[in-house]
Amino acid sequence: MVKIIRPLLVIFGGLSLLTGLAYPLVTTGIAQAVFPAQANGSLIEKDGKAVGSRLIGQNFSGEQYFWGRPSATSPMPYNAGNSGGSNLGPTNKAQLDAVKGNVDNIRKAHPTQTGPVPVDLVTASGSGLDPEISVASAYYQVDRVAAARKLPATAVRKLVDDHIIGETFGLLGEPRVNVLELNLALDQLARKV
């Protein structure tokens, strides 16, 4: 019996050390060496303090800030510990009511806008934590943000233009704007004026 158990324990111990200790240490070391920012959460710092991540949306609700996509996480919005969509289909009454309510709120907050509301301002992403909005959504909000900050709309629009992220690898996805980065730049612009 000892002849059978001893090799099994040696193999178990060796594989545990290899896959449970050596492999994670090597991959973590490589990630830290090659992609340190991404390996540490893609954090955005302001005055030496982390204020958020480029990868997780935040709840901006003030008139003076650009708003991101609605969040589908619960029990609170933009809860990174509870990522996930609502799982409501496009014909579900609760989903239709939520989108209609979001459209009404967006229209009320942007009385100067008469065109269609960009879809990403009224629907949540699959993760419920999307940190980015479309360029159209950012432009849609320029007048409201400029008025709330008492800034020229042209200056706020230029700020949006400066924060457009192009397609990934030049061909995947669509141009977009990271809401947290844009709002931090907006705070800096307001301090300069």
Rank of each mutant, 00 (worst) to 15 (best):
L9S: 06
L9D: 08
G13S: 14
G14R: 00
G14H: 04
S16G: 13
L18W: 00
L18A: 08
G20W: 07
L21A: 14
A22P: 03
A22T: 12
Y23K: 02
T28I: 12
G29P: 03
Q32F: 01
V34K: 03
Q38K: 12
N40S: 14
N40H: 13
G41H: 04
L43N: 05
I44R: 04
E45R: 12
G48Y: 01
V51I: 10
G52P: 05
S53Y: 05
R54L: 15
I56V: 15
N59A: 15
N59K: 14
S61V: 13
S61D: 14
G62M: 08
R69P: 02
P70A: 06
P70N: 07
A72H: 05
T73N: 06
M76Q: 15
A80D: 14
G81E: 13
G81Y: 05
G81W: 08
G81M: 12
G85F: 01
G85A: 05
N87F: 11
N87Q: 12
G89W: 04
P90N: 11
T91Y: 00
T91A: 11
K93H: 13
A94R: 07
L96F: 05
D97Y: 04
A98M: 11
A98R: 15
N102C: 06
V103F: 07
V103R: 04
N105T: 13
I106G: 11
R107Q: 12
K108G: 01
A109N: 11
H110R: 02
H110G: 00
Q113I: 00
Q113C: 02
T114E: 02
G115F: 00
G115M: 05
